[in-house]
Design a protein around this nucleic acid. Structure first.
Length: 373
DNA sequence: TGAGATT
C-alpha cells in the first residue's frame, strides 16, 4: 500500500504554512495613493523587457481586524460543514462555521470560515491545525480579512513563463505591484518540470489590475518570450460550466461515474494507494460510517492528535478522546469515525502497531460490546 | 488553457 507512515509522522507539525502575518485592509483613500505609486508606463507597442523601478507597495494594517474569524483553505472536496465544525470544535467553542459552496451546484469550493468565541482559540487553531493533512490535501488556516469588494477577484493566471523560472522568481516579479497572498507554478506531475503557467493571488484587486497593466505582454528579465497575465477564472465559474456541460453534452462519460463505482471498493484500491485516499464513496455504505477503536493513547492525548493521525487516510467525520471525569486526562483510548470502509481499513492496517510518541497504538474496528450496564 | 482564498 502506498501509505507511508513517514507521511503520518510528518504531520506532526511540518510548519508547511506560515500564518499570514497580515493584519488588515487599506482604506479607500490609500488605494488611490497606492495606485498612483505603482502606475507603470507600459506602452502597447509590443513586447519589451520589464524594468524594476516601481516602488514597493505599502503594507496594509489595521487593529480593526477580527481575531476570532478564520479562513480555512484547501479542504478535501467531500468534507462537510459538520466535519469542519467537528474538527475546529475540538479546539474551542465555535460561534459560527460555514463551508462555502457553489451557489448553483452546491459543491464545496474547498474553503470555509470558522469564527471562534475566544480569540485565543482562533490562535490555537492556527497553531495546531494549519498544515494538517486531510486526505490528499494540506489545509491552511489563517485569519480571515473583513470581506469587501476590494479583496475579491485579485487572482491572476500567468502563462508563457520561462520553464526555468522558480516560484520565488515569479513572486519577485509580481511583488512590486502589491502584497502576494499565494503563488504557484504548475508542474508536470511526472517530470516535475514547470508547465510555464502559474497563479498569483494578490491582496487586493487594484494590485492585480496594476500587475496586468505592467506585466502582460512583457518579457521577464532574461526571457525570450513575453508572458501573458490575466484574471484567473474563479471556481464557481468552473463548477457552473461543468454543470452546463453535463446538461448539454452527450451522455458519454469522461470520468468514472456510477459504472466504475459498481466495481465496489476494490476499484478504489486497485489503481494505486493515492486513489484509495481520495474519498470516493462506496455504494452500499452510503449513510453508514465505520467506528475505529484506538487504544494506548497517552494521558495528554487530545482530539487534535486523532485528527492528525487519521485524517490523511480519508474522510474522518468525528473523533473522540475518552477522558477521566475528574482529571480530564485521556483514559488511554478513543474513537475515530470514518465514512469509507477502504479508508478505515487502510488506516487500521497502517496505524495498528504505529508508534505515537512513546506508545505503540492498538487500532481496530470498534467491536460491538454495546453499552455498559 | 488552469489551481482553487473572502461567506
Amino acid at each position: 500500500m502506498a501509505v507511508r507512515l513517514c507521511d503520518v509522522a510528518s504531520l506532526l507539525r511540518s510548519g508547511s504554512w506560515a500564518a499570514e502575518p497580515w493584519t488588515g485592509q487599506v482604506i479607500a483613500a490609500m488605494e488611490t495613493q497606492l495606485s498612483n505609486r505603482l502606475t507603470c508606463n507600459n506602452t502597447s507597442n509590443g513586447p519589451s523587457t520589464i524594468s524594476h523601478n516601481c516602488s514597493s507597495p505599502v503594507e496594509s494594517g489595521s487593529i480593526e481586524d477580527s481575531k476570532t474569524n478564520l479562513i480555512v483553505n484547501y479542504l478535501p472536496q467531500n468534507m462537510t460543514q459538520e466535519e469542519l465544525k467537528s474538527l475546529f470544535g475540538s479546539i474551542g467553542e465555535i460561534e459560527s462555521c460555514k463551508l462555502v459552496r457553489d451557489k448553483i451546484t452546491g459543491q464545496s469550493l474547498g474553503y470555509g470560515f470558522v469564527n471562534y468565541m475566544d480569540p485565543k482559540d482562533a490562535e490555537k487553531a492556527i497553531n495546531t491545525l494549519n498544515g494538517l493533512r486531510l486526505q490528499t490535501k494540506t489545509i491552511k488556516v489563517s485569519y480571515a480579512r473583513p470581506s469587501s469588494a476590494s479583496i475579491r477577484d485579485a487572482n491572476l493566471y500567468v502563462s508563457g513563463l520561462p520553464k526555468t523560472m522558480t516560484q520565488k522568481e515569479l513572486e519577485q516579479l509580481f511583488s512590486q505591484y502589491g502584497h502576494i497572498i499565494t503563488s504557484r507554478i504548475l508542474v508536470d506531475q511526472v517530470t516535475g518540470v514547470s508547465r510555464g503557467v502559474g497563479f498569483i493571488r494578490f491582496d487586493r484587486r487594484i494590485e492585480a489590475e496594476e500587475a496586468i497593466k505592467c506585466l502582460n505582454g512583457q518579457k521577464p528579465p532574461g526571457a525570450t518570450e513575453p508572458i501573458m497575465v490575466k484574471f484567473a477564472n474563479n471556481p464557481s465559474q468552473k463548477t457552473s460550466q461543468a454543470l452546463l456541460s453535463q446538461l448539454y453534452q452527450s451522455p458519454n462519460r469522461r470520468y468514472p461515474g456510477p459504472l466504475a463505482q459498481r466495481f465496489s471498493r476494490f476499484s478504489t484500491m486497485a489503481i494505486d494507494g493515492v486513489t484509495s485516499l481520495a474519498g470516493i464513496n462506496i455504494p452500499g455504505h452510503v449513510g453508514t460510517s465505520w467506528c475505529i477503536f484506538v487504544y494506548n493513547l497517552a494521558p495528554d492525548a487530545d482530539e487534535g492528535i486523532l485528527w492528525q493521525t487519521f485524517g490523511p487516510f480519508g474522510a474522518v467525520t468525528n473523533v473522540k478522546v475518552i477522558r477521566d471525569f475528574n482529571t480530564n486526562k485521556c483514559k488511554g483510548f478513543g474513537f475515530v469515525t470514518m465514512t469509507n470502509y477502504d479508508e478505515a481499513a487502510m488506516a487500521i492496517a497502517s496505524l495498528n502497531g504505529y508508534r505515537l510518541g512513546d506508545r505503540v497504538l492498538q487500532v481496530s474496528f470498534k467491536t460491538n460490546k454495546t453499552h455498559k450496564a
